[in-house]
């Protein structure tokens, strides 16, 4: 199971705002597909999947503030279920 999370970048570990979900729970995703777009104080960032599988549930909604390090969703490999 791959966790897609808000990366802590740079010196300060600020919150990010979730701008957009590009994949929905249950969607098939492939390596490199952009799953979500977030905005930090410096930049907007596309968050790609690094594995292929099925997207789990959205843990945040669009416009939510998400602390750096927190998981947004998981990508489930065949046979895996969400915790």
């Amino acid at each position: 199971m791959e966790e897609i999370f808000v990366p802590a970048l740079g010196m300060a570990m600020d919150n990010a705002v979730l701008l957009e979900w590009l994949k929905q729970p249950g969607d098939q995703v492939n390596v490199g597909d952009i799953v979500a777009v977030i905005e930090t104080d410096k930049t907007t960032l596309d968050l790609p999947a690094e594995t292929s599988g099925v997207l789990g549930k959205h843990m945040y909604a669009v416009n939510d503030e998400v602390p750096a390090g927190n998981t947004l969703c998981v990508v489930l490999a065949p046979g895996e279920a969400e915790a």
Partner: peptide, 10 residues
């Protein structure tokens, strides 16, 4: 771990 925010200041 740093990407997860565990390492202060990167």
């Amino acid at each position: 771990l740093s990407l997860r925010g565990k390492v202060s200041g990167g």
